[in-house]
Design a protein around this nucleic acid. Structure first.
Length: 264
DNA sequence: CGTGGCTCCTGGCGGC
DNA sequence: TGCCGCCAGGAGCCAC
């Protein structure tokens, strides 16, 4: 689930539920999801402290503590945040549980354990170490165009590469390419200026639309690919049966009629 | 530099 | 019903 819009939703959820509350206890059930931080250090920098504000870069969520450290959450494929008050609401697959002194809790829930938690003194250092590209939520057109025109290879792989553009994964790359009528294997260096401009606008619109719908608990428009992105799904524009191909190990859904390829 | 394959982990689903 | 293999929205690592 967690690509940029989901992580942004988690960020707002954390803001709404857990800011400025003193952390009483941190229960680390699965220390193996900690990355470059010891369990004791994590507890030490969190307990008796408060989360003051949050930020997001790509699929990473950063929570700033009044111990002057940043708690960093990455949600992998199945991670999410769950805020609750009664113990019987504790999610079964919680990996880390933060209990505040008002006895409410914030759990990092993640069945598949692909999520990661770390700690840093400087957010920018972390982004640099991870070599993350610019966040696609607030990237400007010029930067976007420069990135696309200075690369080679399949456009879908580029969109999903966090070192190049941070925030897009398998689902939303499919959506963007569908709306822009671009075959996922199209080499980026063959996409012209006009099409890059269109892609940029579509990318912004997709991310914003998904985020708005998530916040209001509303379904995505039927004209989007995602509601039809299932086995035997059909293109909402042409009613053609959608196709799937494997690109770099990931399943890409696309409409063979709307997203024709001159390559492959 | 770009890509494909393998890996981590667990649950759900379709097929037999 | 039971078991098995395959698949899943992420990403790091290695080989070519």
């Amino acid at each position: 689930m967690p690509e940029l819009p989901e992580v942004e939703s988690f960020r707002r959820y954390l803001d709404k539920t857990s800011l400025n509350k003193t952390i009483q206890k941190v229960d680390v059930k699965n220390p193996e999801i900690l990355q470059n931080v010891d369990k004791r250090v994590l507890k030490d920098k969190l307990e008796k402290h408060k989360i003051q504000c949050t930020k997001r870069h790509g699929k990473y969520l950063f929570a700033h503590l009044d111990s002057n450290y940043w708690l960093i959450l990455h949600f992998g494929m199945t991670g999410k945040l769950v805020y609750f008050k009664n113990n019987d609401e504790t999610p079964y697959y919680y990996r880390i549980l933060i209990t505040f002194n008002d006895e409410s809790n914030l759990a990092f829930d993640d069945p598949r354990k692909f999520g990661k938690i770390s700690l840093t003194a400087e957010m920018d250092d972390f982004i640099e170490e991870k070599k993350l590209g610019p966040d696609v939520y607030d990237i400007d057109f010029k930067t976007f165009k420069n990135i696309l025109t200075s690369r080679r290879g399949a456009v879908k792989i580029l969109l999903m590469n966090q070192h190049i553009l941070a925030g897009i994964g398998n689902i939303y790359s499919d959506e963007i390419l569908y709306q822009a009528c671009i075959h996922p294997k199209t080499p980026v260096n063959t996409i012209d200026h006009q099409k890059i401009k269109e892609m940029y606008k579509i990318m912004k619109n997709v991310l914003q639309t998904v985020l708005n719908r998530q916040i209001n608990h509303r379904k995505l428009p039927e004209s989007f690919l995602i509601p039809h992105r299932i086995k035997n799904g059909r293109c909402p524009r042409s009613d053609t049966r959608l196709k799937t191909i494997k690109i770099s190990g990931r399943t890409a859904y696309y409409c063979p009629l709307c997203q024709k390829s001159k390559f492959q």
